[in-house]
Amino acid sequence: MPSWSEAVERTVVFFTLGYDFLGWTIAGAALVGLICGVLGSLLYLRRLALLGDALGHAALPGVAGAFLITGHKALAPLVIGATATALLAALTITWITRVSRTRPDAALGIALSAFFGLGAVLFSILQASPSGAQSGLNHILFGNAAAITPGEVGLLAGIAAVTLAGVTLLYRPLQLASFDPVGAKLAGVPTGVLHYGLMTLSALAIVASVQSAGVVLVAGMIITPAAAARLLTRRLHAMLAAAAGIGAVSGVLGAWLSFLMPGVSSGPAMVLCAALVYGVAFALRLRRPRAAAEAAA
């Protein structure tokens, strides 16, 4: 634990970008929070909040597989591999739910554990091989915002642009499909296309967030800002904006805490900040009588 004066000093260094890499760190952490907040809100409204958990875990075999095939830690193959397995997990969950009597929550749990188990198998093979000894499993599991590269920030910025553009252009159909899927289908909204589009974007976003948040806790960044925003507002555009803001602030605060206390990974710190916001929002919501809250909506 750093002393107070050390903490103040490091805080000043952090926010005045005292090191070159800090600009990338802060930008990356804010982008992760923003993307996860927006996509998380859309998933939350479709009762798919825990999908982020499954997709985050499912990125692991993709990372390990890409590493095994290429033999080094290049960004492009890792992102392609991880996105492919995360997307495969999303399709598996959709498929299980449609063709069998297995309940959706269990389908999610099966896909999550199966893909993570496969990832564990691949990683154990990788670590036994000479090239993979320093593959940095711990960073992939728990995130390290400070080690983010400009290339990864660029990828995050690209995903953020696509997400924001998509949400703005498709706002009406998304709104209909989120609150009233049956009505949306009747009104001719291509709900299937929207569903798979959301899945693809979520898979990409989760993969790109893994460097900062880690595979285990990216779920927290998907769920918690969205749930907190939902407590504060019932309108979709306000919820999207609030979730993006809460996510971005939590992301930056998490990266700051991780910089302040060496050894603390950034993923857990981000999720804890988001959970604090959720706790405050929950307390605010409890103080407001239910009837008044409904009337205000």
Partner: peptide, 21 residues
């Protein structure tokens, strides 16, 4: 105020994060 699945997600990710820290 929060859906069941999201409630599970909020609680366990927060506690797990606390544990790791």
């Amino acid at each position: 105020h929060t859906r069941d699945d999201a409630a599970i997600g909020v609680v366990f990710t927060a506690l797990f994060a606390l544990g790791v820290i």
